[in-house]
């Protein structure tokens, strides 16, 4: 068994990387996949609370890298899925405690433990980002449909190109369909044209995300949530399924335009 390693990253902070990582991981686990998520945002640990696993932490990523524990000891088992594990970030260390080659080595070990390794990256263009993408087979860039998030996404996409990685794929998060309709928000087509990369999903703005984060239960576990559905679709696309984009109550005109994007 050898896992595929996916890194979720962004240029700008707060665009939804941790939310996306947690939800993609849980959705894959729901589909019966063995998943390890790795929080590479050292010093700003968050994936544990989003997954509701903060009370179970004993060891962290830096403990593994520095040899204070075995890999398995740092893998916290999820409450809901036996085959979903989290390796938390260290909270009291900084990004320089880990190097890209440490991450490659860790990635290789993790490949034996799961079908998927999903890495939550810190925002920005420095060491933490380089650590997070070092072992990645595939990189997902999260952005919001606003000017600064798109600009920063472009920087990151350029850096990923320079690392000679596979071209990244884009998640557009926090889309407000009604604002797009009004002409007050960039639509997916605009963003894709500007960034010139492939789309893997559009996630609507959804209050369920905040509620689910409050209680540590990722929104994909919420049947009715639109954002949950969008993350489930992204996970299915990672598995290789062809899944049409969500109907985000766009008019027909939008839907046909959106469906063209996926060709």
């Amino acid at each position: 068994m050898t896992a595929k390693i996916i890194t979720v990253t962004s240029g700008k902070g707060g665009v939804g990387k941790t939310t996306a990582t947690a939800n993609i991981a849980v959705a894959l686990a729901q589909m019966g996949q063995r998943v390890v998520c790795l929080d590479a945002d050292i010093g700003l640990r968050n994936l544990d609370v989003v997954l509701g696993l903060e009370n179970r932490i004993v060891y962290d990523l830096v403990d593994v890298v520095e040899g204070r524990c075995r890999l398995k000891q740092a893998m916290i088992r999820d409450k809901r899925f036996d085959e979903l594990h989290l390796i938390p970030a260290a909270q009291t260390r900084d990004k320089n405690a880990v190097s890209p080659s440490d991450m490659m080595k860790l990635g290789d070990e993790l490949r034996e433990e799961a079908d998927w390794v999903i890495i939550d990256s810190p925002a920005g263009i420095e060491r933490g980002f380089r650590n997070a993408i070092a072992p990645a087979d595939e990189i997902l860039v999260v952005t919001n449909p606003d000017v600064s998030a798109v600009r920063d996404a472009d920087r990151i996409i350029g850096l990923i190109e320079a690392e000679q990685k596979e071209p990244a794929k884009l998640i557009i998060n926090r889309m407000h369909p009604e604002m797009v309709q009004r002409g007050d928000m960039l639509d997916a087509e605009d963003v894709l044209e500007l960034l010139a990369i492939k789309l893997i999903g559009i996630v609507p703005e959804d209050e369920h995300v905040i509620v689910s984060t409050n209680v540590g239960k990722p929104v994909v576990l919420e049947e009715k949530s639109m954002a949950g559905q969008a993350f489930r679709n992204i996970s299915r696309r990672l598995m290789g399924d062809e899944v049409p984009l969500l109907n985000l109550e766009f008019k027909d005109d939008f839907l046909t335009k959106l469906s063209r994007i996926f060709k």
């Binding site: 000017v147 798109v150 002409g183 928000m185 960039l186």
Partner: peptide
């Protein structure tokens, strides 16, 4: 249309 303006500025 502020979205159009955003797109042109971003370009």
């Amino acid at each position: 249309n502020s979205a159009n303006e955003a797109k042109e500025r971003l370009k």
